[in-house]
Write a protein that binds this DNA or RNA. Structure first.
Lengths: 320, 320
DNA sequence: TTAATTTATGAAACGCATTTCAGAGCAAGA
DNA sequence: TCTTGCTCTGAAATGCGTTTCATAAATTAA
């Protein structure tokens, strides 16, 4: 395959001039430009992108770390990221971690090795002591409140939004409120846990371990929740479900065994996924696509670290 | 930052020897190996991955083309691809095309430019006349029957599986059968359309344009289908829905307006997504994760073109 | 007219690791 | 003893484009 040198020879110019033509630099006379373009055409020349990467030290690749690609929450987030990446001529390298720290470290190492220009971590597993070791190698963008760290972030205030949702349920007369969440650890889970604990003490209710459901990620997990629910002596009258799909699963399973919603059990979802609209699930809208877009822009912005809080909106429908 | 030359100097060996150590070549004496490793350690040396790529002419990157990242069908497929990629130390570059041909061409060009080692196209938009132009640049793997082409493929026989599903419905007493599908064009849609037409003529039914529903991709699209259905004078008594999520949406919307399933309307899904189990939707199981794995292995296999047909299985539940 | 810019061009340095090739040294087999 | 055949090592070639620097030529400004 022809390389830039061949083109230069063929067009009777220097490689510098060829490079200028390829990169649309000014200061190339019309005659030479034409000659170069002709030579490129005739030799069917293709720039070796890896040589460009080596030379420029950048790859136009952005890493995206998600625990699961196949999850509606991250699906929307990645959709936003992908759309914006497209606009900016960047491509995405996808890291599916399954919440294994090693996978996340692999992604960080790709940043270190310069195989990607920056890294977006949609849900972090590694501790900050690890992340911080890599901030020097390139922009890292988080999808959580990271205002005290050497990265950029786009996030929502989980404490406030959880509190709002809880208060909403309380105003509707619920005081036996439980919640379903994806994982025990993680920064958002902590914030939500705190909001929950504070809410309970505000309304003078006792913390009941039974009212918290973990591993609530998908439609099918709703079944487990409802099973546990129906075996309880003193079940909650309302459930905050941090993900509409799981909420939809719960609603579906409830219908099946005759638990009336919202009369027997009120359900409040999160995200405002399309499914929540169809199933009339009251939910807290999180503009995931928009957040994704923002994450990518921050990743491109490189040097300066910015932090953007996105606000959520409660959407009243028929499950509370 | 240190490079391989610095390490060579520091360790008192040639760059060749350093490279040998880095790549675990044999024929390096223990003494020199140790010296090199020490020098690497002390200089905090990082191999420049782009130089490696340039030199080796490969990137350990595999492109994956999907119309939407945020769709359960492709979600499972990508999950399988990602898992297998991980095992083989490959990373994925994700191309979300939204079914725009230009996006797919971009991916093909990245193959041409050697920024990716091979390309998996999960759902093709471009015609073969375009794909064929790129087969010389690296392995291309399709998720459709491509036995007559210069690529590898993992696929299911949509004609047969659609036929089986239709016959199953027919055996249950249905002859007014319609179907819901994602898009009008595309190879799988054509195969299914043919199976449908052949089925109709076999049972002596007239082709009814109204019985076919397009753009049926997601849960929310079920609503539209049901709306159209309920306004029909002579609606079908059974519906084949090429995607469980859409089927679930249809089931949900039907319940809402009192269409009984399967009595008033039988629903048959596709994929055997988790949601279909929960909602007891009769479906045709497509082992998407396994297919994804296979696609990746074929992508790695490079030179030789293989074609693997995956068989599907009808799973009887309660919506037919 | 002279000085200061701007335009245009190419040689050479730079980014960096892998691989081929040639050769030295040593051991095993004939 | 002589021939093969490993083991080990490094110089040099290879992959390829970008960018800096020096310089010449053409303009514009003073």
């Amino acid at each position: 395959m022809a390389n830039i040198k061949d083109i230069a020879k063929k067009a009777g110019v220097s490689v510098t001039t060829v490079s200028r033509v390829l990169n649309n630099h000014p200061y190339v006379s019309e005659g030479k430009r034409k000659a170069v373009l002709l030579a490129i055409e005739e030799s069917n020349y293709q720039r070796n992108i890896n040589a460009v990467h080596l030379s420029k030290g950048e790859t136009l690749l952005i890493g995206v770390v998600v625990p699961f690609t196949n999850h509606p929450y991250f699906g929307l987030l990645v959709e936003g990221i992908a759309n914006e990446a497209m606009k900016n001529n960047y491509k995405l390298v996808l890291f599916q971690t399954n919440y294994e720290a090693d996978r996340e470290i692999e992604a960080l190492k790709m940043l270190q090795y310069k195989q990607i220009d920056s890294l977006i971590i949609c849900s972090r597993i590694c501790g900050w002591e690890i992340i911080n070791q890599f901030t020097e190698y390139g922009p890292i963008v988080l999808c959580e409140d990271a205002r005290n760290h050497n990265v950029s972030s786009t996030f929502i205030d989980h404490y406030i939004s959880f509190t709002n949702a809880l208060e909403y349920l309380h105003n509707k007369g619920h005081y036996k409120v439980g919640y379903c969440i994806g994982r025990k650890s993680g920064s958002s889970s902590r914030q939500r846990g705190k909001a929950y604990a504070d809410f309970l003490s505000r309304i003078n209710e006792r913390y009941n371990e039974e009212y918290i459901f973990y591993e609530c990620l998908n439609f099918e997990h709703g079944e487990d929740v409802v099973r546990r629910l129906s075996s309880m002596d003193n079940p909650p009258t309302a459930l905050l479900v941090t993900n509409d799909i799981a909420a939809a699963g719960i609603v579906t399973s409830c219908r099946e065994i005759g638990i009336r919603i919202p009369d027997d059990l009120a359900i409040m979802g999160f995200d405002n996924q399309p499914i929540s609209k169809i199933m009339h699930i009251t939910t807290l809208e999180i503009p995931l696509v928009q957040m994704g877009r923002n994450l990518l822009l921050q990743a491109l912005d490189g040097e300066k670290h910015t932090h953007e809080e996105i606000s959520v909106k409660l959407i009243e429908r028929q499950t509370v």
